[in-house]
């Protein structure tokens, strides 16, 4: 292909995106578009997969049957959402084996927020309200993505995940208007999850080198700071209205712009946690590796059964 043809191809691709068309698996796409999508979708899939762990730890201790049913369903959803996303990455040529190896060997990134511990039952509610709340803002944005399989996975995930957010909000609102002990639990959970939730939406736009190209390709339709602003504008007033204190002395409502403003985020902590040195990184990976190893006999049995059945069929 000549340079002119390559330029025409790239221009045709960008025109399709500008016209609002969805790119599908077999379409021509720039190598960098494919590479960035595999990177993003892989990290997103790993986040769903690892995201089962912090809350899964509380299933046994759920205080009522209703809360236990809700939590089991939520953790099961995260497993399913990981499956939708691994599928979307596969359509671009990635394989599940490679992606899982990268996760288990500690080479793949996943959301920083899942490397914080769940110390009390109220954390389950606060994760639903804040972490799922932030994730939904991001995912609603990604549902507009120019890559069809990723966009469709996001639409399905958002539809299912809305209840994750609302059950957490309901739980925290209940505790925030409950006994002094319950109110203290809700406040303690907010103190510990507020900053990780703000951070999980990623570095500021000025420190996010991939963002302009991703926006031009409509892989992302909003920047990290735009999504963080949406999250803040929805959650700050509701948390305050519930009588909770947001652990940010600089938090304020800007009358001029009609937006909430947060104080400065500790990005050193964010990068430490993303790069493997958070409170629970080692524990999370160890749990995933143990699950992988414990499941080996099931995979071996399935493979042996399938092999024998196909041998019988050919006899």
């Amino acid at each position: 292909m000549t340079e002119v043809q390559a330029a025409q191809r790239a221009a045709a691709f960008e025109a399709r995106i500008a016209a609002g068309e969805k790119i599908e698996a077999g379409d021509w796409m720039p190598d960098e578009y494919r590479r960035q999508l595999i990177r993003m979708i892989g990290q997103h899939a790993h986040s769903e997969y690892v995201g089962m762990l912090p809350e899964g730890a509380w299933i046994d201790a759920a205080p009522t049957l209703r809360r236990k049913l809700i939590l089991v369903a939520k953790v099961q959803d995260e497993a399913g959402h990981g499956q939708y996303l691994y599928h979307a990455a596969e359509t671009l040529g990635a394989t599940r084996a490679e992606m899982l190896d990268a996760l288990l060997e500690g080479r793949a990134k996943y959301s920083s927020v899942f490397n914080y511990p769940t110390l009390t039952w109220a954390d389950v509610g606060m994760i639903g309200w804040l972490v799922d709340g932030a994730a939904i803002k991001n995912q609603l944005m990604l549902a507009q993505c120019s890559y069809g399989p990723y966009s469709r996975a996001m639409v399905r995930i958002c539809a299912e995940e809305t209840f994750h957010h609302l059950q957490g909000r309901e739980m925290i609102l209940t505790y925030a208007s409950g006994t002094p002990h319950q109110r203290a639990m809700a406040q303690d959970a907010l103190d510990r999850w507020w900053w990780p939730a703000l951070m999980m939406l990623g570095p500021h736009d000025a420190d996010s080198p991939n963002s302009p190209q991703l926006k031009a390709w409509r892989v992302k339709t909003k920047s990290n700071d735009e999504v963080r602003q949406e999250f803040l504008d929805e959650h700050a007033p509701e948390l305050l209205a519930a009588g909770l204190t947001i652990p940010d002395d600089d938090l304020r409502f800007d009358e001029e712009t009609r937006h909430w403003r947060h104080g400065s985020i500790d990005w050193a902590e964010f990068w430490r946690v993303v790069k493997g040195d958070g409170p629970c990184n080692a524990e999370r990976l160890a749990a995933r590796r143990a699950a992988h190893d414990d499941g080996r006999w099931v995979r071996e049995a399935l493979a042996a059964h399938a092999a024998r059945a196909s041998q019988r069929a050919s006899e």
Binding site: A73, F163, L166, E170, P237, L240, A242
Partner: peptide
């Protein structure tokens, strides 16, 4: 039957607290 998976099960509203300036 698993109605707890549906958002309509969580119609909880937040009363505006006088301290909020929004």
């Amino acid at each position: 039957d698993k109605r707890y998976k549906q958002q309509s099960e969580y119609a909880v509203s937040v009363k505006r607290h006088p301290a909020t300036r929004e």
